[in-house]
Design a protein around this nucleic acid. Structure first.
Length: 471
RNA sequence: GGUGCCAUACCCAAGCGGUAAGGGAACGGUCUGCAAAACCGUGAUGCAUCGGUUCAAAUCCGAUUGGCACCUCCA
């Protein structure tokens, strides 16, 4: 099946054609590990996970590389930038390495909790300093860099296509729009950026390496260019990130990579939109942000959040609220209980046979292939579970088939195991049955209220009452 | 100033030229002692506004209004 994706380079939906027949090189910009990931960050990683699963589901062998930025990501890009990790380290009295390790572990925990498939390679910036130095040397040889004020800068005027990804018009760009960023007077062009620092107004950093230009540390953008080429080659298929990466980070990555190699670097640039809250973008620097752990502490399952994210297309902003998350939870629970019911009826996974089942599978696949249309894919799931044209076995089998992409852990759903109720609960339930038999409905309703207070809901079925925990 | 994203029923949300998916809420029904759950049914002659193109427009073009993001912190 042909997969179409929205390519930021060209601003259009394009048919995906990999460089190699069956293999896809996929680089995803990973986290900077100076703090916890918030649920907005995680939305982007879920989108990338869906992209990878869709490609895999379609038969591609996906080489997925994700970096861990543990050095060089500065609060600014001039000579006044403070390294984010160094900053956190100073504030907490810990070493930068300790900070990086701590938040890397926290990130991977969230990553797994959300059922994202691990990359083929995780690469840490600090493990690849020599690769970055080699890339800078290539740029230097090609005349794309200059030294000024102790730092090595990339000169964007040596790269004619600069800004193509973001359709930047150089003359109209404002510089240092943000209040906390000042103009770096060492730059020839205000849009030039540092590839290697040896001097910083913050002085001696914790993380420094020897280089041909002196002891120092790399700029932020250079790591992605260097590491992606190391693991995926000098040209590869897909590079992803959040929309915020388009005008600066990815623009600069392209400049470095293509200036060094003199050929096209990445074919498809795909960007995820932001998760918003009532007050706008969720921002780390504002201090207030929501983590996955906070949702878990509030009683949500990570799959509730994943389901919530899948409810909106990756290229539209979605607004997070607990009200909306509640609806997602309710919907997911409804789907899970439908699947449980199928299991209780003794279904097993079967090959899809009927025309109707195959049509649903096709509709699902088309939704995925159509620029990752997950809201549509979820609609197909609902239609499948509610259909009276496919058998229960097929419903179950289709749900598992869909879950290869959705990643909602349908394969882990088990038959409702008859939980051993505590004696108190058992007694109340028996008493209620007796009260009902004696037509003492007042007492029966009292017991229902008591059970409700204990957190259980009674459902009277033809087979007798069922007690289930309130969601 | 520049670059983008967006506006679809009470709410969330697909749709990308052929006559409006899906979910929630609401309402009606079946079931029930009553509920809950489940199941069945009901819902936009309409897609921010105004023009234009077309046999045909939510979909394309132009203008307007409103929301959001980015342009050296963040996905």
């Amino acid at each position: 099946m042909k997969i179409s994706l929205y390519n930021t380079m060209g601003r259009s939906i394009q048919e995906f054609k990999p460089i190699n027949d069956n293999q896809v090189g996929f680089y995803a910009c990973g986290p900077t590990v100076y703090n916890y990931a918030h649920i907005g960050n995680l939305r982007t990683f879920i989108f990338e996970d869906i992209l990878k699963r869709v490609l895999t589901h379609s038969g591609y062998d996906v080489k997925h590389v994700m970096n861990i930025t543990d050095v060089g990501h500065l609060t600014g890009d001039g000579d006044d930038g403070d390294d984010k990790l160094t900053k956190t380290a100073k504030e907490t009295g810990k070493s930068a390495m300790e900070i990086a390790n701590f938040y890397t572990i926290a990130f991977k925990k969230d990553f797994n909790a959300l059922n994202m498939i691990e990359p083929y390679v995780w690469c840490k910036a600090t493990d690849h300093i020599s690769d970055m130095i080699k890339l800078i040397q290539r740029l230097e040889k090609g005349g794309h860099t200059y030294q000024s004020g102790g730092n090595v800068y990339f000169s964007i005027d040596t790269f004619p296509d600069y800004g193509k990804l973001a359709s930047l018009k150089m003359d109209d760009l404002k510089v240092a729009v943000r209040d906390d960023v000042s103009v770096d007077l060492n730059k020839k062009n205000p849009k030039d950026f540092v590839v290697w620092f040896t001097k910083s107004k913050f002085g001696e950093q914790q993380m420094m390496w020897d280089s041909p230009w002196g002891r120092g540390y790399p700029g932020w953008h250079i790591e992605c260019s260097a590491m992606s080429m190391k693991y995926l080659g000098e040209s590869f298929d897909i590079h992803t990130g959040g929309v915020d990466a388009i005008p600066v980070h990815h623009t600069n990555e392209i400049a470095q990579a293509e200036a060094a190699t003199n050929h096209k670097w990445v074919n498809y640039w795909i960007h995820g939109e932001f998760l918003l809250t009532d007050s706008g973008k969720m921002s780390k620097s504002k201090g207030e942000f929501l983590t996955l752990q906070l949702l878990i502490d509030r009683g949500y399952d990570p799959m509730d959040y994943r389901f919530f994210v899948l409810g909106g297309h990756y290229r539209t902003q979605i607004k997070f609220s607990f009200e909306n998350l509640d609806i997602a939870r309710k919907n997911r629970n409804s789907i899970v209980s439908r699947i449980k019911e199928l299991l209780e009826n003794g279904v097993v996974k079967v090959e899809l046979d009927s025309i109707e089942a195959k049509a649903l599978a096709l509709e699902f696949d088309e939704s995925c292939a159509s620029n990752l249309n997950m809201p549509k894919a979820l609609a197909v799931l609902w239609n499948t579970l509610k259909s009276d044209k496919v058998t229960d076995r097929e419903k179950y089998s289709l749900a598992l088939y869909f879950d290869q992409v959705l990643g909602l852990r349908f394969d882990e759903i088990q038959k409702e195991t008859k939980e051993k109720l505590s004696d108190d609960l058992e007694d109340l339930l028996v008493e209620r049955i007796q009260a009902k038999q004696n037509r003492n409905f007042g007492r029966a309703d009292e017991i229902r209220d008591e059970l409700d207070k204990l957190g259980y809901v009674v459902k009277d079925t033809t087979k007798g009452p069922i007690l289930s925990k309130k969601m």
